[in-house]
Structures are given as structure tokens and as C-alpha cells.
């Protein structure tokens, strides 16, 4: 805990004392305290989003945010708590990461929450998927890589960030779209996956732009393709998979959701505040500095986004689960 947050803490205490006890209003007001459940350890991607967004959001909403980390089961412990054990009084929300938010319960029948039990508030960022190879790799273009896989099926090794993560599913989506077969090597996170590609242990890594960008800039990794709708300004020379006739758009997204049954006032107020944050040039500059690709979808848009993904991933998992490696 740094001194800044301690100071904030003191302010919160002062505000809480000023507030009459039990005045659980149907809207956020100055001094209300909002707990943000995080399903991952501090210092990870979710935390990075929280550190970026919450100072701005706190100013717009007037509420103070307190992060609560409950890592475990790739976020499922925190999200189960959000869906099943949290009062819908707007005082507890959670950072929701896709695709894990859905793949958790799609893949494990023991995990019982679903997106129908939450109120999606707003998605903030999407880190687009990329294919990276090391600088010395013989594959200069994505066609060359796929051609090699076509010539020798099940020999090309592709790293991903772990079963159930976005890269794992995007590998399967590419396999389905192209009819190719790769050897999918799971790693414990995006870092070890690109590091293995860099070391030449694997032929390529399906990864995320924000994570590999420093290595790409340093010339250690080469991007073969990006899984977005259109080319990105950060890497203008890199083609999208769509250009190559492969209809795969994928990435890892992070946003905010509350429990089901949050009052309409709370939801509207939260989205309105988030709208203003997204329009703030200071915020956008901060986001750019951290290589965050803003992908703002609020309210029903976010729900539709989640629902579409749920359908896709369910279909993919039904197909591959019996022959899972």
C-alpha cells in the first residue's frame, strides 16, 4: 500500500463519518465506497486496467474505489462471488475479463455462474490477438507459416497463454477456418509463451499485441498477423487475418460488471461516468502510454458482445473437448 492510497483511505474514513449510517441510496454519491472485485493477483492485467481507469472514474462518479483481489480458478472464484453472493446495491462490482468469464463455466461444469447472473456495465479495452515469431524465424509472412502447416500437418508448434485463454481459442478458430492442424503448446501466461517463441522452442506464439509490443519494437519478435477488423495504427504494415480471408477476430478484453439486479439508476450513472472518462483526452493519452487499445462498449452492447462470444466458445468447446489434446 503506497502513501497515496493511505491518504485516500483517510479521506474515505472522513467521508464515511460524514455520511449518515445506513443511507444506502439508489445512486452513487460523493464518498460512497465501491469495492472492485478482481479475480487475479495485483500487478496483472486486470489490476493495470483498474489503476488506469479508476482514478478518472472516481472523479466522474464521485465514488471511491477499493480493489479487492480474490485470485484463483482463473477468476472464477471472484466471479462466482459476484454472481451468487453479492448484494446488488451497486457497492460491489468486478472487473470482467473475456474470454475467461465465459470459458470458465463452459469448460468446467463445477463452475456454476453464468453471464446471465451479472450486469455487464462497460468493456474498456481489448488487447488484440497477434501471431508472433522470432526474428530469425524462416516464416516471413502468415501465408508461409500456414503453408508449412499445410505441407506437414501437426508439426508446427504454436504457443498459447493457457487452456481457456483467448489465444487457445483463437488458435482453434484459425484451425477451423483454415482446416489446418497445429500442435498447441500451452504456457502459463502470455509472457512464457512469447519467450518460448523467442527462444525457438516453438515455431510461433499466438499472443496479444499489448504484451508483445516492446519485443516487437525491439525487433526480437516479428508479427505475422493481427486478429482485428482493420489494420492497427501501431503496426500499419501487419495484415489482419480477415484480409487473408480468414474470418477470425479475437483478443482479450477487460471491462466492468456488477451483480444481476443492480438498480437502473446505478447502471446509468456508472455508464454515464464511464462515457465521460472515455472522452477525456488525458485518459486516452494515459491509455496509449500503456499500450492499451480502447474498445469501449457499454450496457447492452457489452452484453451482446459477451453473448456472441459465449455462443462461439460453447460451439468450439463442444467440438474439441473430447479430443482435447
Amino acid at each position: 500500500m503506497n502513501s497515496k492510497s493511505l491518504k485516500k483511505k483517510a479521506l474515505i474514513i472522513a467521508a464515511a463519518l460524514a455520511l449518515p449510517f445506513g443511507a444506502a441510496a439508489q445512486q452513487y454519491s460523493a464518498g460512497s465506497e465501491v469495492t472492485v472485485l478482481q479475480g487475479f493477483s495485483p500487478g496483472g492485467g486486470s489490476d493495470a486496467l483498474a489503476q488506469l481507469v479508476q482514478p478518472y472514474l472516481s472523479k466522474e462518479l464521485g465514488a471511491n474505489f477499493v480493489n479487492q483481489y480474490q485470485p484463483g480458478a482463473t477468476g472464477a472464484i471472484a466471479w462466482t462471488r459476484l454472481a451468487k453472493q453479492t448484494r446488488a446495491d451497486g457497492r460491489t462490482i468486478s472487473i470482467t475479463n473475456t474470454p475467461m468469464l465465459m470459458t470458465n463455466y463452459i469448460m468446467n461444469p463445477t463452475i456454476t455462474y453464468s453471464i446471465d447472473e451479472i450486469t455487464p456495465l462497460a468493456n474498456v479495452v481489448t488487447d488484440p490477438g497477434v501471431i508472433v515469431v522470432r526474428a530469425e524465424s524462416p516464416y516471413q509472412t502468415v501465408e508461409e507459416l500456414f503453408e508449412a502447416a499445410r505441407a506437414n500437418p501437426e508439426t508446427i508448434t504454436i504457443g498459447n497463454s493457457g487452456v481457456g485463454g483467448d489465444d487457445y481459442f483463437s488458435t482453434i478458430m484459425v484451425e477451423k477456418a483454415t482446416g489446418l492442424k497445429f500442435i498447441k503448446v500451452p504456457f502459463q501466461g502470455d509472457g512464457p509463451s512469447w519467450a518460448a517463441a523467442l527462444a525457438g522452442t516453438i515455431d510461433a506464439s499466438f499472443n496479444n499485441l499489448g504484451i508483445t509490443f516492446p519485443q516487437i519494437q525491439a525487433g526480437n519478435l516479428r508479427v505475422l498477423a493481427v486478429f482485428t477488423e482493420d489494420r492497427l495504427p501501431e503496426i500499419p504494415d501487419v495484415p489482419t487475418l480477415r484480409e487473408k480471408g480468414i474470418d477470425v477476430v479475437a483478443g482479450s478484453s477487460r471491462g466492468y460488471s456488477g451483480p444481476k439486479g443492480m438498480s437502473a439508476e446505478h447502471v446509468q450513472q456508472f455508464i454515464a461516468a464511464m462515457d465521460r472518462v472515455i472522452a477525456n483526452p488525458d485518459f486516452l493519452r494515459d491509455a496509449r502510454e500503456r499500450a492499451f487499445v480502447i474498445d469501449y462498449r457499454s450496457g447492452d452492447d457489452y452484453m451482446t458482445f459477451l453473448k456472441n462470444q459465449e455462443v462461439t466458445f460453447k460451439a468450439i468447446w463442444e467440438e474439441v473437448k473430447d479430443q482435447a489434446q
Binding site: 484463483g72 482463473t74 468446467n108 493457457g162 487452456v163 500451452p186
Partner: peptide, 23 residues
């Protein structure tokens, strides 16, 4: 806990708290 290659929840006795393994 969940096995890293297939995502199978191993030896968890259906307890979600054990999905990411013994901390």
C-alpha cells in the same frame, strides 16, 4: 487443480477453491 494442458480440474472434489491448485 486445473491441469495446464487440457484444463481438466484434477482432484478438486468439486471444490472451486482448489481449481488453481494448492496455493
Amino acid at each position: 487443480g486445473m491441469d495446464p494442458t487440457t484444463g481438466t480440474a484434477r482432484f478438486t472434489a468439486g471444490n472451486i477453491n482448489l481449481f488453481s491448485g494448492v496455493p
